[in-house]
Write a protein that binds this DNA or RNA. Structure first.
Lengths: 353, 353
DNA sequence: GTGAAAGCGCTAACAC
DNA sequence: GTGTTAGCGCTTTCAC
C-alpha cells in the first residue's frame, strides 16, 4: 500500500444549501425594491445617496454576497476568465498564470483554469467545453497545444492569447494577443557570446509553438548571420533539465562547441550537468546562457547567465487586454511589461584559447 | 518605457452573446420535452434507450453545451471547486494544484483558483467571497494564510484542506483533510546523516502553517533526541533560494556544523551557494539534504539528496475527498499517494574527520 | 429616483 | 417513460 500521510474524512455534512440570503431579503430589510439593491450592487446611477448607503449597510449586516451564477445567467457583465494552458508548473507558465490571477483578482474577476493535454487536438466545441461556463478566456500558447486551442476558438469568442510569437496564420489572425519580444534578446545574448570570442554559438531550443521558427531561434540566427558565422544545426529539446541534459550530452562532447544558448533555464541546468560530466569547465572552456532567469538561476553552480523574461507582467497585460475586450469601459490597464534583459553571471565567459 | 514585446488588439468584437442553443432547442429538434433532454444530459434513468440516443444525436448535431451557470442556479449537482492557495508557482503548491486540476478535469469538474495574500487575515465572509460562486473548495494550507482561511470557513461549507499537518485546534477540527506524513521522513533523513557520522544535524525550516512545530521539524527533533544528541536551535527561513542563502550564511561559517537539513529544495539550493562561498565543500565537509525532490534537484552541482514528496498525488487525493463529500455517490477515488522517500545523491556524505 | 414585469437556461418536484 | 409546472437569484427592459 502507499497511502502514506493520512486522510481525515471529518464530520462535515453534505452541501447543506441553506436559504442563501438573496437580493430580495436585502430589499425587504432595507425597505426598498430588489431592483434598487441590484443597482447598488452594480454601482449603477439613479440611486439617491441615502438609499445607496442604507442598502450598503443592510448588505453588510446581512452578510449578503451576490450569487455569481445568477448574475451570469441573467446576462450581467462578464466577470470571469478561464485560463487554458498546457502547463501550470513550468516557470513561464506559472508566472504568466500568477500575473493573470493577480490582475483578475484585483478587479474582482473569477479565474478558472483548465490544462490542455500536450497531444490533444481539440475542435472548437471541445475547447469551448473546456471553458465550462467561462465567458471569456486567456490561452497561454507557448507550445503547439495552446496554439491549436487558440486557433480552434470561434473568432468572435472573447479570448486573448499569451503567445510565444504573434500568430501569422490566418486562423488566429486578428485575435488580441500579447507576447514578449525576445528575438532581439536572443540576438543580444548570442552577440554577447560572440563578443567574448566564441567562434559560434549553439542553440538548444524548447518546443516551438508553431511550425515556423521561434523568436528565440530567429534572434539567435540573426546574430550569427549578421556576424557572418555559419549557423550550426538547431537542436531541439523539451522543457525539463532532464531533456536539456540528454540533448546536450552530444553537444558538449564536441570541444569545438564553446558556447551554448539554451531555450530556458531548466534546459541550461541540464546542459550544465552534461558539461560537468564531460569534463568541460563552465565558463572556463564552455559558456552557457539560459532564458527566463528563474529564481533558482542565480544560485546555481555556476550561477547562470540568463535572459530575464517578465512573464508575470505579460500575464497581467494579457488580462488587461481581455478586460478591455469584454468591458470597453474598463480603465485601460497599464499593458506593459519589462523588457527582456541579459543578466550576466558566472556561466558565461571568454572563449577558451 | 517598458512595453517590450508587443500587443495586438485584434479585431474581435465585444462579447456578442448570441442566442446560445438551449435545452429547449434540442428538445424541439428532437421532438421531446426539454425535461427529457435534461434527463439525458444528467444521465438520469427513466428515459427509453432510443429516446436517449436520439437526444444525444441531436445534442451532437446542434453542438449544444449545457449552461453551467443555469445548472448551478437551478440547484444541479456541485461540479466546481475553487482552490484557495497562497502560491501557485512554488513546487509543492504548483504540484498539488496540478494534481487537483487533473483529478477534477477527469470527472468534469470546473476548477477556479484564488490566491491568498500572505498577510491577509480574512473573515468568513471574505473567504467566501473569494470562492466567488464556487460551491466547494480545496484550500492548500502549507502556511499560515491557508490555515487561517481554512479555519475561517463555516464548518458546514464543503471544503477539504490540503495541509502541512493535521489541524489540532478546534477551529478546523473534524474538517476533511489530507497531508503528507513527512515526520518520519524527516527523521529518516536526520538519522541518515547521523549514521554518516555527523555529530548533529541543523535544520533550516520553511515557514510553518501553524503555531506548533511542523512535521518536518518534529521528525528532525525526534531523531536527534532518540540518538541522544542535543537539538540545535531551529533556524527559520522563507521558501526561496535567496532566503535559504541568507539564513545559511551564518550557519556555514561555523565549521562545527557539518550537516544541514533544509525545509525544501529551494532553501537547500541557497545553502549550497552559501557553503560554496564560505569555502565549504559539499559533501566533503558539509552535507545538505532538502525536501521535495523537485525536477531540478538531480541536476544541481552537487546533485541534491532530497526527500521526495508526492504533492501531485496529495492534490489528487484531496480532490477525491472533496468529490466524495459533495457527491457521496461518486466512486471512491483511490485516495493514496506515494510515501516520502529519501533520494540519495551527491550532496550528502560522511562527516569530515 | 424607484418599482414592476419578464426571462436568462436549467433542475426539481409533480403530474400523466 | 415522458411532459408540465415551478422556481433558482439575478439583470435586463419598461413603466411610474
Amino acid at each position: 500500500m502507499t497511502g502514506s500521510g493520512n486522510i481525515s474524512t471529518g464530520t462535515s455534512t453534505p452541501p447543506d444549501r441553506g436559504p442563501a440570503t438573496s437580493i430580495w431579503e436585502v430589499a425587504r430589510a432595507a425597505g426598498v425594491s430588489h431592483q434598487t439593491v441590484s443597482r447598488v450592487i452594480n454601482g449603477k446611477p439613479h440611486v439617491k445617496a441615502e438609499t445607496r448607503a442604507l442598502v450598503l449597510a443592510t448588505i453588510e449586516e446581512l452578510r449578503f454576497t451576490p450569487n455569481r451564477a445568477a448574475q451570469a445567467l441573467a446576462g450581467g457583465p462578464v466577470r470571469s476568465v478561464t485560463v487554458l494552458t498546457a502547463d501550470t508548473a513550468a516557470y513561464g507558465y506559472a508566472s504568466a498564470l500568477r500575473g493573470i490571477e493577480e490582475a483578475a483578482r484585483t478587479v474582482g474577476f473569477t479565474v478558472g483554469i483548465s490544462v490542455l493535454e500536450p497531444d490533444a487536438v481539440l475542435g472548437a466545441q471541445e475547447v469551448i467545453e473546456r471553458l465550462s461556463g467561462g465567458r471569456a478566456a486567456i490561452v497561454i500558447a507557448f507550445e503547439a497545444a495552446g496554439t491549436r486551442a487558440l486557433a480552434a476558438l470561434p473568432p468572435d469568442y472573447p479570448v486573448v492569447g499569451v503567445v510565444e510569437r504573434p500568430a501569422a496564420g490566418h486562423a488566429s489572425d486578428g485575435r488580441p494577443q500579447v507576447w514578449i519580444d525576445d528575438r532581439e534578446a536572443a540576438s543580444r545574448a548570442t552577440r554577447h557570446l560572440l563578443g567574448l570570442g566564441h567562434r559560434s554559438v549553439h542553440y538548444l531550443s524548447i518546443p516551438s509553438s508553431t511550425q515556423v521558427l521561434s523568436q528565440r531561434t530567429q534572434g539567435w540566427q540573426d546574430a550569427l548571420t549578421a556576424a557572418g558565422r555559419p549557423v550550426p544545426p538547431l537542436r531541439s529539446a523539451g522543457w525539463t533539465p532532464r531533456s536539456g541534459y540528454l540533448a546536450a550530452r552530444e553537444l558538449v562532447a564536441d570541444r569545438e562547441v564553446t558556447a551554448i544558448l539554451a531555450g530556458n533555464d531548466d534546459l541550461a541546468l541540464g546542459v550544465l550537468r552534461a558539461a560537468r560530466e564531460a569534463g568541460r569547465d563552465v565558463p572556463g572552456n564552455l559558456s552557457v546562457i539560459g532564458f527566463d532567469d528563474a529564481p533558482q538561476s542565480a544560485y546555481l553552480a555556476p550561477a547562470l547567465t540568463s535572459v530575464r523574461l517578465d512573464f508575470e507582467g505579460l500575464g497581467r497585460a494579457g488580462f488587461g487586454l481581455l478586460h478591455n475586450l469584454v468591458d470597453p469601459q474598463s480603465a485601460p490597464v497599464p499593458s506593459t511589461w519589462a523588457e527582456p534583459e541579459l543578466i550576466l553571471r558566472e556561466s558565461s565567459g571568454p572563449a577558451p584559447r
